[in-house]
Amino acid sequence: MTRLAGLELGGTNANLVLGTPREIVERCRLPVTDGADTLARVAGQLLQWHEREPIEALGIASFGPLQLDSGQPDYGHVVATVKPGWDGADVLGTLERAIGCPARIHTDVTGAALAEGAYGSAIGCHDFVYVTVGTGIGMGIIVGGRPVVASLHPEAGHLRVRRMEGDSFGGVCSYHEDCLEGLASGSAVATRARQPGDEVSDDSPVWPPVIDALAEGCSSIFLTLASERIVLGGGVINQRHWLVEEIAFKTAAKLGGYLPYIGERAPIVAARLGADAGQRGALILAEQALQSRA
Rank of each mutant, 00 (worst) to 15 (best):
N238E: 15
I221S: 00
R240T: 10
W242H: 14
N238H: 13
S219L: 03
E228L: 11
T224K: 01
G217P: 14
G235Q: 01
I262M: 05
Y261S: 15
I221G: 00
V236A: 12
E246Q: 15
I237L: 01
R265E: 12
V269Y: 05
A266Y: 08
V231G: 00
R265C: 13
T224L: 15
A271H: 00
V244L: 09
A275K: 09
G234E: 03
E228M: 07
G235M: 00
G256T: 03
F222M: 06
G256K: 03
N238C: 12
S220M: 15
A248I: 07
S227V: 13
A275I: 05
S220R: 14
A252I: 09
S220N: 14
E216W: 10
C218Y: 01
A248Q: 08
I247A: 15
I237P: 01
A215Y: 08
E228V: 10
A271T: 00
K254A: 04
E216V: 09
A270D: 00
R265A: 12
H241S: 12
I237N: 01
N238R: 06
H241C: 02
V269K: 03
I221D: 00
E246C: 14
I237M: 08
S227G: 10
R265P: 10
T224Y: 07
L232C: 08
Y258S: 11
L259I: 13
A226V: 09
G217F: 14
L223Q: 13
C218W: 03
E246H: 13
L243G: 11
V269A: 07
L273S: 02
R265H: 13
E264V: 06
A253Q: 11
I262P: 01
L273E: 03
L214T: 11
E216L: 07
V236C: 07
G233L: 00
L223C: 13
Y258G: 01
I262E: 02
I262S: 02
L255H: 02
V244Y: 10
G235H: 01
Q239Y: 06
A215V: 10
Q239F: 04
G256S: 04
L273D: 03
L223Y: 14
S227A: 15
Y258H: 09
S220E: 15
W242T: 04
I247K: 07
Q239W: 05
F222A: 04
L223K: 12
H241M: 07
G274P: 05
L255P: 02
R240Y: 09
H241Y: 05
A248R: 09
L232W: 02
L223G: 11
G257V: 02
G256W: 03
T251A: 09
F222I: 03
I237C: 03
A248N: 04
L214P: 11
G217W: 14
S227R: 10
T224M: 14
